[in-house]
Design a protein around this nucleic acid. Sequence first.
DNA 1: TGCTTTTGTTAATGTAAGGTTAAACCTAAT
DNA 2: ATTAGGTTTAACCTTACATTAACAAAAGCA
Lengths: 237, 237
Amino acid sequence: MEEQNKKILLVEDDPNFGTVLKDYLMMNDYDVVHAKNGMEGFEKFKKDDYDLCILDVMMPYKDGFTLAKEIREKNTDVPIIFLTAKAMKEDVLKGYKVGADDYLNKPFDSEVLLMKIKAIMQRKATDSVADSKQFEFKIGRFDLNSKLRFLKFDGGEPTKLSPKENELLRLLALHENDLMPRELALTKIWRDDNYFTSRSMDVYIAKLRKYLKPDPKVEILNIHGEGFRLVVNGNDK
Amino acid sequence: MEEQNKKILLVEDDPNFGTVLKDYLMMNDYDVVHAKNGMEGFEKFKKDDYDLCILDVMMPYKDGFTLAKEIREKNTDVPIIFLTAKAMKEDVLKGYKVGADDYLNKPFDSEVLLMKIKAIMQRKATDSVADSKQFEFKIGRFDLNSKLRFLKFDGGEPTKLSPKENELLRLLALHENDLMPRELALTKIWRDDNYFTSRSMDVYIAKLRKYLKPDPKVEILNIHGEGFRLVVNGNDK
DNA sequence: TGCTTTTGTTAATGTAAGGTTAAACCTAAT
DNA sequence: ATTAGGTTTAACCTTACATTAACAAAAGCA
C-alpha cells in the first residue's frame, strides 16, 4: 500500500541549519521544499500545495510572521509552525495572532519537531469535517463520495470505485464544466506522464463513462490533445 | 476553572535519579508516584488510575518491558514512555511491541521529556474526543457492551466476545458508516502494523461478520487498501 | 485525400489484498 | 500435566486493481 508523502514548506535563512533540517525531515518521509527567505518562501508557496509550513521568525527582508500573514491570505487552512528564538515569550508571539499551530524555540530537539508535525497532521486529518466538501460531489443525479469511494445514482445502491477511478472522477468533478488537463491527472494521480500511463488513463475514462451512463445529462467530453471535461447538461451558465 | 493535575507513574530503580526526576516533574505540575522497582510499580499501578507511565527498562527483578506487558493487560490505553540505555536500537525495542508511545535514551534532556509528555497527553486528549468513554453501542438489532465484552441480538442471549473481537467491533462501531482505517485498528489494537497482524485482523473481521449475520442489515464492508466500514442499512442519510 | 496521432473500448494478464477455515501456538487456570 | 480460551500463522481461494495489448474510430494535418 502506497501512501503519498506529506509536503512541507521550510523557510529558513540559515543555510546550514536549513539544509540539516530539510535532510532530517526527508529522512522521515516528508517531501520538503526549502526556501532561503520570506520572498522565496511565498513564491514557492504559491506554486504548490503544502500540508505544512515551517517558518523561521527571524529572517531578513521578510520575517516569518509577515510571510505567515501572506500565506493565510491565500490559504486559511495550512498548519504553520514557527521557529523562534529562545528569548521570545509566548504572549509576545500570540500578539501576532496569525494562527500558528505551534511554536518551537531554537535550538530544539528534532524528535520533538517530528512529533509536533505528526500531531498536527493527524489533527488535520481528523478535522476533515471542514474539508469534507472536497470529498463529496453532486454530479447530475449522482453523488460521489470520494472518501468512501462510492458513487450513488438517485440515492440507490452505491457503486464502489477503485482508487484510480475515484481520484480521476474527483479531479473531473473539481473542474466540473471546465477543462481538466490530461497532464494534471497524470501528474497528480499517476505521478508520471508517458505513453502507457496516458493509455491507462484513457481506460479509466472509459470506465467512468460507463458508470455515468445512467444519467444522460452527464458526459465526459474529450478536448483533443488537451484533456477532458465533465459536463452536466442543463446546469447551464 | 480548576483543572486536575495529570497523574504520572514513574518506575525507576536508581533512587537518586528517580527522586530528581520526580521532583522535576512535580515542579511542572504533574502528580508523580515513584516506584523503585517493577513489582512495586505494578502494585501502585493497580491501585490507581494514571495518565501516563514512565518506565525504566533496566531494572532488577522485573524489567520495564515485562512490567509494561502486565500494565497493558490491565489497561490498553495508558501511554507508556520507556527510559532506555543509549545503546539500544529502535528495532530491538520494537521487537517487544508492547505499544510504547515513546522511548528516551538516558541520559536525556529533561525539557525534551517534558515536551514528549505534553505531546502525548495532548494526543490522548484529542484522540479521546472520538473514542472517549463510549462502551455501549446499538448496531442494528445488536447491542454491544464493550465493557463487559458481549453482543446481544434482539435482547436475547448475549454472545461473549474475546478481547480482540471486542475491541475491533468497538472501533468499527465508533466509526459507524464511516471508514475505519486498517492502520488505525492495527496500531490501536495490535500495536504493530505488519503482514501478519494484518492477516490476523482479517481473521477477526471474518469472525465478526459471522456474529453479525443474524441481522442482514448490518454489514462490514471492505474498502480495498483502506480499511473497513460498518454499515447499518436503512440508517440512511 | 491519405497518413499520423490521439482517443475509445474491450479483453487479457499479473499481482496484491482480502476472505475463510483449520491447525499451531501460547498462556493462564485447573 | 492437561485443558480451554484466545490469538496467530498457514494454506488456499476469491476478488479487486492496474497495466498492457489489440483493434477500432476520430481528429488533425500535410
